[in-house]
Nucleic acid binder design. Sequence first.
DNA 1: CAAAACCAACCAACTAGACGGTATGTTAGC
DNA 2: GCTAACATACCGTCTAGTTGGTTGGTTTTG
Lengths: 178, 178
Amino acid sequence: MSKVDKEAIIRAAEEVVREKGARKLTLDAVAAQCGLSKGGLLHHFRTKQALLQAMLESSIACESELAAEYAAKGGDSGGPLASRIHSMFALMEDEETLPRALIAAVAEDPALLEPIKAKEAKIRDELGGKCSDPDLALLLLFATRGLFLGRVLGVMEPGDPIFERLRKRLLELSADLD
Amino acid sequence: MSKVDKEAIIRAAEEVVREKGARKLTLDAVAAQCGLSKGGLLHHFRTKQALLQAMLESSIACESELAAEYAAKGGDSGGPLASRIHSMFALMEDEETLPRALIAAVAEDPALLEPIKAKEAKIRDELGGKCSDPDLALLLLFATRGLFLGRVLGVMEPGDPIFERLRKRLLELSADLD
DNA sequence: CAAAACCAACCAACTAGACGGTATGTTAGC
DNA sequence: GCTAACATACCGTCTAGTTGGTTGGTTTTG
């Protein structure tokens, strides 16, 4: 039988947010999405908040992994800024796990965002220490995030050619900084 | 007597989102916030969706007004890009009406974002026609939005000096384009 | 080695309260 | 006396979480 682990539940929750909106991320909906009873779901996550927290943590880990992967692959051709730009664009193309978790968390309880804040601070430190022009690096990072969140929130169409054009542009500009 | 008009109700709704999160934007909470019974509230907005729509429209109008104001004041010292940058920063500093409405709308029903999409397209057309380097202009616009949404979602602290530094930087860069 | 004890993983049924919306007033001003 | 602007009471539904199981596999023990 199809084993149901925590990872699968998190995926199901993300699916619910994508399909029906963050407001309708209910335990019943998640349970139905992954073919589980509500009782079974609550066996894995004892409260809804625990589920949301797990969603956020999983997303953060996913983004970090992507960034690390790019940093390793690119060797010395790209610094930390390029890695971040790459990872955010990759997140946009593949899945939108982080954004969905983020929307759900903000809707439910803004206090859940603390871990994101912490990560934000880390990234900024990283860039500040290594770049010749930290403010400009941050500006490029925020531009990437602007695109990212525009896509996430649904204000921009997925196939828009602007994504590819701006990705190139951002990487060019970041190359002068790293 | 404290008259309660639609504008006051929208403000109250924004207040609820700020204080308790988008998920707890309920008709009861809004009614309580503006000292009205639920029945009274529903007299002004027949459904919750109508209220959300009004929140979004009010916010969009507010942003447009700010941009127009800056465009008029700045005369020819700033083009459309500078106006937009100014207006988004102004929104961040003064109140966060748009963001709050946006979060609530996304949480409730992503389809409510259509008017925002339309406005987005308009702004992009505007920049594309008038700037020497449209892609770079968009990049700066997205950087502003990245800051804006970072603030809105609560991942960045309000008083962070980075806002002021990047605002200056963005305006400098935009001056070469407009 | 087999019975007994245990345990994680699940489910169905339920509860208490929250929520959106309706139905039916009431009151103040034109 | 008609209408806009409220209020009160209520309804059906939805929701997070609880309770009390069952089942199948593993571990312990006589």
